[in-house]
Amino acid sequence: MAQMIDVIPRREHSALTSMRYWLKMIWQTLNPIIIGMLILASLWQVAAWISDGALPTPLATASTLGELLSNPFYDNGPNDKGIGIQLLASLGRVFTGWGIGIAIAIPLGMLLGSSARLRKMLAPVIEILRPVSPLAWYPLGLAVLHNAPKAVVFAIVITSLWPTLVNTTMGVQNIPADLKAVSKVFRFSRWRYISKVLLPAAFPAILTGMRLSMGIAWMVIVAGEMLAGGTGLGFFVWDSWNALSLERVMSAILIIGITGLCLDRVFSVVGQRMAAWQEGGH
């Protein structure tokens, strides 16, 4: 009997402990984020005071952001569209440019990683093209493509492909010699080697490259759309500046930052999942 009595309170106790545990975990995760955000907001507030009203305060921005987000998909003609439409336009260009970029960079990186001769040949070309500013490519794209949004996509392609190219090359170069020996001894065909050895071995490096490429693409899009006009977050920023609405500019900056963060998190999660899968998890 003593034992039975003992069991009941222990169960309640454990349920309570587990709830407390989870609340504590959530608090511990959120706590530093909240403090960080508060620091950012206070610095912003101080900057707004010092600038004597030129810079909008966090509160004024928040209310503008709320307005923008309350009706994100309205469309009142070419110069007045909801922030959601602008965001989707930018995302569409970013994914197109980034997609074309990695479609060039991954196969080329695989070739470069496999051939020292090719690396020696192309290294100077890559080193010359890589540091060129994204906007320098824009007129070139415009001249060839005769279309401002396409020229932006072109600028994204040519500036975002480098990290994927360099990382894929390194990933393929660093495939363990033992695994290459296995492929030779068991006479793996080229396709079997690529699909079962090269790609899985280089995958973490390729993913890192894709992540860095995405970061660059997202940086380039805003600048590109400022030049190109029409639609997109970059155009929205420039248009708001012309309308002297810095609250809208600040709101757009927040949206750009948060979207960039989300894109980066996606790669981080995919990377962790793949690593777990390679080690035998699910």
Binding site: D178, A181, V182, V185, F186, K196, P200
Partner: peptide
């Protein structure tokens, strides 16, 4: 190299 002379490596070399 040839599968006629298959090899077992020191560090297993499994994929």
């Amino acid at each position: 190299p040839s599968p006629e002379r298959a090899m077992v490596f020191q560090h297993y070399s499994l994929l």
